[in-house]
């Protein structure tokens, strides 16, 4: 069984993101970058399937600038077998990324695609579902558990009311939620080994899919700031403030 995982290079989740003064976006120069945390979970899940003998091969894909290769190497260091780097200097929107991934899927014919449920930069939460629709495959989004048996995937999903279990025929797309697993750190020997693993480069513009942006960012601004309030002495004072000042209880 072949598993395809998609990874995205994003601003590290610990970085306090700042909006650019001209309102054109957020500051990305000299900012620490990392693999999108949900994609780490996707890579981990795929690698575990390989370690369990369920998957034979794990292919990691990224779509992005030359620097995205770093993120692909991280996936390889975690245990993916090979990488595909779809190079695009333009930031692609989810619909375009899904089209790129579709063209990779048609070539690679994976049995399972695992992607993060959302990237923590644009917070879109779209690409996995869009890819599934384009491939006419079923989807198991926001997965907290995935079990594969007899060409079926049983996925436990984190939904608003609790948990939901769905059965999907394969191939299918799974998008990861936080509780699916705890991703490993790549060990130094594995980081060294990853440098020798193959990465195939393709130009996004050469795939013959429409990757033009559909949304224009008019401006990016700071959210309204919350001012810190006061520190109360004790519980009595807290209750008094809530009753008589804030009037919320």
């Amino acid at each position: 069984m072949k598993v395809l995982v998609a990874v995205k290079r994003v601003i590290d989740y610990n970085v306090n993101v700042r909006v650019k003064a001209d309102g054109s976006g957020v500051e990305t120069s000299n900012v620490k970058m990392a693999m999108n945390p949900f994609d780490e979970i996707a890579v981990e899940e795929a690698v575990r399937l390989k370690e369990a003998g369920v998957a034979d091969e794990v292919v990691a894909v990224t779509v992005g600038s030359a620097a995205s290769q770093e993120t692909l190497r991280t996936a390889l260091a975690m245990g993916a077998d090979r990488g595909i780097h779809v190079v695009s200097d333009e930031e692609l929107q989810p619909l375009a990324v899904a089209k790129v991934l579709k063209s990779i899927c048609l070539e690679e014919m994976p049995d399972l695609v695992i992607v993060g449920k959302q990237a923590i930069d644009d917070d879109s939460n779209q690409t996995g579902q869009m890819l599934a629709a384009m491939m006419k495959w079923p989807q198991g989004t926001f997965a907290s558990k995935v079990e594969l048996n007899d060409s079926k995937a049983v996925v436990i999903r984190e939904v608003d009311g609790g948990l939901e279990t769905v059965g999907l025929s394969m191939p299918c797309v799974v998008t990861t939620d936080l509780r699916l697993n705890e991703p490993r750190y790549a060990s130094l020997p594995n980081i060294m080994k990853a440098k020798k693993k193959p990465i195939e480069e393709k130009q996004a513009s050469a795939l013959g899919v429409d990757i033009a942006p559909r949304l224009t960012v008019v401006s990016v601004s700071e959210p309204p700031k919350r001012e810190a309030g006061i520190v109360v002495e004790d519980v009595s004072q807290l209750v008094d403030k809530l009753k008589n000042v804030a009037k919320v209880i």
């Binding site: 601003i11 306090n16 993101v17 909006v19 957020v26 923590i120 930069d121 644009d122 917070d123 559909r214 949304l215 224009t216 960012v217 008019v218 401006s219 990016v220 601004s221 700071e222 959210p223």
Partner: peptide, 13 residues
């Protein structure tokens, strides 16, 4: 976007 640390105004074509 970015966990609400920025607000994007977007226009759809």
């Amino acid at each position: 976007i970015y966990a609400g640390n920025a607000m994007a105004t977007v226009k759809s074509g």
